[in-house]
Design a protein around this nucleic acid. Structure first.
Length: 279
DNA sequence: CGCCAGGGACAAC
DNA sequence: GTTGTCCATGGC
């Protein structure tokens, strides 16, 4: 079944979203040969979708099972009005952020599968994006069908030595095995944590071995969709020191972000991150 | 506190 | 081609 949705360039651009560092397995499937449009794919949990820009109708067309369409609307966060965030940014006098918005037109914060986000961001620590993608794909190939992310009760029973061999996971394999075991045994309920208030969810995440402040913030934003989360990695540190010199401390800078962009700090971060990485 | 862990990307030489 | 640096977290 194909579902059409009218979305402006400002409202949806998969090229921006898939290269923003928030999702590691959204793909461009075809290069648009023979006049065919570029087709993208995503999967989340047991759901799959293909989508492309329909130039005749000027819509984005999403091909998925009829029963999954509601799921995909939620995944792409179509209920959130990003244009209203953009209007606030456009009215601000933050040149770096306004440049970021122009560069990252069509950004959204996805509502991804909690389990996949959790493990993906444990993998992301002390790591770079190409290598993170590689490790995740190897896990999908080896311990699932190559498309869907392996379940906790599968990963829990893989010997650590095997989990390290040829996956480039390194010492993170131990964290992944530990977390998988606890989830599979029902001792760790990620879904329940995601429903806690912000401070409680953050506290619960930081207790988990392999999850520090940076990884916790990423899970809070990309997994739990706490839009007030503002993950700070090395790129963001670079931005703060190079592009926001007026703020002499990190806290002063964060006060500025929190007061000017309440409720969509994570979206602001995503725009800045994309812009800085693109250079 | 400082150091190490595993390993690929990336820049500099 | 080879070398050096980067990277989040936990354990010691």
């Amino acid at each position: 079944m194909v579902f059409s949705k009218s979305l402006t360039a400002e409202e949806f651009n998969p090229e921006i979203i898939m290269n923003s560092g928030q999702v590691f397995r959204m793909k461009k499937e075809t290069a648009g040969a023979d006049g065919m449009p570029d087709t993208y794919s995503a999967c989340s949990g047991d759901n799959d979708v293909y989508f492309y820009l329909n130039k005749e109708k000027d819509t984005w067309d999403f091909a998925c099972e009829e029963s999954q369409w509601d799921f995909w609307c939620r995944y792409f966060d179509f209920d959130t009005d990003y244009t209203s965030y953009n209007n606030i940014i456009r009215k601000s006098d933050d040149k770096f952020l306004k440049d970021s918005l122009k560069d990252a037109f069509g950004m959204r914060i996805l509502r991804q599968d909690l389990w996949e986000v959790f493990i993906s961001y444990v993998i992301s620590q002390n790591n770079n994006i190409p290598k993170i993608k590689k490790s995740i794909q190897i896990l999908c190939d080896r311990y699932s069908d190559g498309i869907h992310f392996p379940k906790a009760d599968v990963l829990a029973f893989i010997p650590e030595a095997e989990l390290m061999d040829g996956t480039a996971l390194g010492y993170r394999a131990d964290y992944i095995k530990g977390i998988s075991e606890r989830v599979a045994a029902g001792m760790l309920d990620i879904e329940a944590i995601s429903k806690l208030p912000y401070a409680d969810a953050m506290e619960a995440l930081l207790k988990i071995k392999g999850v520090g402040p940076k990884v916790a913030n990423c899970i809070m934003l990309y997994g739990f969709h706490f839009m007030e989360s503002y993950p700070i990695d090395t790129w963001m540190k670079k931005i703060i020191s190079e592009d926001y010199k007026d703020y002499n401390t990190k806290d002063a800078y964060l006060d500025y972000i929190n007061s000017e962009y309440p409720g969509f700090q994570g979206y602001v971060q995503q725009l800045q991150f994309y812009h800085k990485r693109k250079g």
